[in-house]
Design a protein around this nucleic acid. Structure first.
Lengths: 258, 258
DNA sequence: CTTGACCTTGTCGTAGCGTCAACGTGTCCA
DNA sequence: TGGACACGTTGACGCTACGACAAGGTCAAG
C-alpha cells in the first residue's frame, strides 16, 4: 500500500498521515527504491486505531501517551476523563443556546440586541431621542449590564427599574435637555449651580442611593466607593467641563448631607 | 481609561484588547502624550459587544462582518445559523459520548478496545492463539470494522458472524494451522494445491460469497470487484509467496465455477 | 534613586492539519 | 518518444485566538 491508498482507506488525507508520522503517532514504514512509503496491514490498523480515539475528541498527544502506556486501565481513566470533558462541553453549549434563544426572542421585539433582554426592556422604556447626554447614559447602562455578573443581572437591573416609570421618564427628559444645554458651556455658567441644586431632589439621588445601598457584587468592577463618586470617573471623561462640574457639585452636596 | 482598566472592566486580558485592535474589531483610540491608549465609554461598550458575541461562539471574523453590516436581520440570520451549528455540535458530542459509553462498557469485559463493541465480540469468539495467520485475519477484521460506515456496522458484522459458530471455529483452527505451515514454503509446494482445492468447500467460500452479495456500502472503500479478489491485495503483501498462491488458486477455481 | 506596576511594540508558540512550492516518479496515449 | 497527468517526496507558511515572553518606556510611591 502507498500513502494515498492508506489515507483513503482510513478516510483521512495524506497530509494527516505524514503529520502522524511527524508526531511519532504512526511508525514510519519501509521505503521502496524510489523513496515511496510502503505500508502494510498493521499500519492501517494502527492508523484507524488513532483515528478512532481522535474522533472521540482526544488530543493527539493524549493518544500517543495512551498507545504508549498501551492497553489497560490507563485507557479507561483517560476515557472517563474525556467523557467528563465532553459533558462539560455539552453544558456550555447548552448555556450558549439558552442565551441565544433569549437573545433571539428579544430581537424579535426590538433589534437592539447586544445587551441582555432585561436591560433591553429598560433601555427601550428609557429611550430619549435626540439627547447626546441620554445616549451616554444608555451606553453606560449597556456597559454596566454586560459587565455585571449574569447570575445577579435581574437584581442588578431592578436598581434602575425606577427610572422607567412614566413620571420619571418625563422628568428625565427635562433633565437631559438641561444637561445637553451645558455641552458647550463654561464650568462657571450660572445654569451649572442651578441644575446641581436641583438634581439631588430628583431621581438621580434615588438611583445613587440605590447603588450605594446595593451589595458590592451588584456593582461594576471599577465601582469602588460609590458615594464618593469614583465610579463616575469613566463617565466624566465623556462630559463637557460644565457637565462634569454639575455632578461634582451634586456629589459635594450629597456628602454634606451625609 | 487606560488599557488595563478597560480590560478588567470587560473581563479580558490587555493582550485580547490589543488583538482586537489588530483585527480592526475595535477602533484604535487616541493616544496620550506618552503613547498610552486612552479609552472612552464607547470603546468599553464596543468591546463588551464583541465579547458578548464571542462568548456565544462566533468567530472574530464573523463578529466583524456582523458589526460592519451593522444592525438588523443580518444579525438574526447569523444567530440562527449559529444556533443550528451549536445544535450540530451537541449532537456530535452526544454521539461521541454514546460511543464512549459503549466502549467503556466493553472494556469492562474485555480490555481489547479500539474496535467497535460488536466486532470485539466477534474477535473474542474467533480468538485463535498462536497462529500468525489468524492474527493477520484479526487485524484485517479490525481494520474493516473501523473503516466501515458506523451506521451499517451491525449489518456489516453479521457478514462475519457465521465464522464464530463453534464448528466453524474448529475448522478454522485446522485451516490456520495448515496456512501457518506454508509461511516459509515454496509456492510450488505440494501442500499449496491440496489446501487450495480444499478451501472452496470451507466457510471461506461462504464468507467471500457473503461479501460478494453484500451491498456496496458494506464493503471497505478499496474493495472493488470482490469476486475478482482485488480486495485481498492488501492482505497479499503480508503473506508468504506460498500462502498467496493458495488464495490465487482459490480465486481461479471460484471464477471457473462461475 | 530604586522599586513596582503599569504601558509600548514585536515575536514565537499553540493544534491539527490545509495549502502551496518545487521537485521526482510512473503510466498512458498519440 | 514525448508530453500529459496522477501520484509521491520534503519543506515552509497559514489558520484561531490569543498566552507568554522580550526589551524596553512611564509614572507614582517609599
Amino acid at each position: 500500500m502507498r500513502i494515498g491508498e492508506l489515507a483513503t482507506l482510513a478516510g483521512v488525507s495524506t497530509r494527516t498521515v505524514r503529520h502522524y508520522h511527524h508526531l511519532n503517532l504512526l511508525p514510519e514504514p519501509e521505503r521502496l527504491a524510489n523513496g515511496y512509503r510502503e505500508y502494510r496491514l498493521r499500519d492501517a490498523v494502527a492508523l484507524t486505531r488513532v483515528r478512532r480515539l481522535a474522533e472521540l475528541g482526544m488530543s493527539l498527544d493524549e493518544i500517543r501517551d495512551v498507545l504508549a502506556d498501551d492497553q489497560g486501565r490507563e485507557l479507561r481513566e483517560v476515557l472517563l476523563e474525556l467523557d467528563a470533558d465532553l459533558a462539560r462541553q455539552q453544558e456550555t453549549i447548552g448555556a450558549r443556546r439558552n442565551r441565544l434563544a433569549a437573545l433571539l426572542a428579544e430581537t424579535d421585539v426590538h433589534p437592539d440586541s447586544t445587551v441582555s433582554p432585561e436591560m433591553a426592556t429598560v433601555l427601550r422604556d428609557l429611550s430619549v431621542e435626540g439627547s447626546k447626554f441620554a445616549e451616554m447614559d444608555r451606553e453606560l447602562l449597556a456597559l454596566m449590564d454586560t459587565v455585571a455578573d449574569p447570575a445577579d443581572r435581574a437584581e442588578f437591573i431592578d436598581l434602575f427599574r425606577p427610572l422607567t416609570e412614566p413620571e420619571a421618564v418625563a422628568r428625565g427628559h427635562a433633565l437631559y435637555a438641561r444637561l445637553d444645554e451645558l455641552a458647550d458651556a463654561d464650568p462657571g455658567d450660572s445654569r451649572v449651580a442651578t441644575l446641581a441644586a436641583h438634581l439631588p431632589g430628583e431621581m438621580v439621588t434615588a438611583m445613587l442611593a440605590n447603588l450605594d445601598a446595593a451589595p458590592d457584587r451588584l456593582r461594576p468592577p471599577t465601582t469602588e466607593n460609590v458615594g464618593g463618586g469614583e465610579w463616575l470617573t469613566t463617565m466624566y471623561s465623556e462630559m463637557s467641563a460644565a457637565q462634569a462640574e454639575v455632578f461634582r457639585l451634586v456629589m459635594v452636596m450629597l456628602r454634606e448631607r451625609g
